[in-house]
């Protein structure tokens, strides 16, 4: 059995993603949570690159790490939230939440573990479906109407945020 670089990277990135996702929900300090979530997004971007979905990898970093998380960080820093102001739930609710989540994971994995594993995605170099040329052509021919509608969604979200955030 040979171990390829892809496999090693897959395991490293998976461990990094899971560890930083766990740190997101266990950190007491909200700023730490934000930074761990950014780390999660970077490891998910790494997975996209392994799957040779380069466009989504870069867009994931630009949109999530570069824009959305900056917004979160801004809000947390301006509200001056830190360890002391962080609301705590009692131990039993935490435990119940963890057990519920664990059960969900168990059920989902049990139901999906026997999916037909014949079709592997071993050969990530096979298709260039994640490249910008192919995705761009699809996006601006077949999916051009949803694309335009999403721009209207953005505009309305922007106006909505300004209206909500304004002081009366």
């Amino acid at each position: 059995m040979t171990i390829t670089i892809t496999q090693i990277l897959f395991w490293i990135l998976s461990v990094a993603a899971l560890f930083s996702a766990l740190m997101v929900i266990t950190s007491k300090n909200p700023v730490h949570s934000v930074l761990w979530l950014i780390a999660t997004f970077f490891s998910i971007s790494g997975h996209y690159i392994l799957l040779s979905a380069q466009f989504l990898a870069v867009v994931n970093i630009i949109v999530y790490a570069g824009a959305i998380m900056v917004l979160f960080l801004f809000v947390i820093m301006l509200m001056n939230l830190n360890r002391e102001t962080e609301p705590q739930k009692n131990r039993w609710i935490k435990m119940a939440g963890a057990i519920a989540g664990g059960c969900l994971l168990l059920v989902l994995v049990a139901s999906l573990k026997n999916v037909e594993s014949a079709s592997t995605i071993e050969d990530v170099k096979g298709g260039d479906v994640g490249f910008i040329k192919r995705l761009g052509k699809e996006l601006f021919s077949t999916y051009v109407v949803p694309f335009e509608i999403s721009s209207i969604l953005f505009l309305s979200a922007m106006v909505g945020a300004v209206v909500i955030g304004k002081k009366e």
Binding site: L18, A21, I25, I93, K94, A96, A98, G101, L104
Partner: peptide, 8 residues
């Protein structure tokens, strides 16, 4: 993990 976070 996301769901556990929302719950706890």
């Amino acid at each position: 993990i996301g769901i556990v976070g929302v719950l706890t």
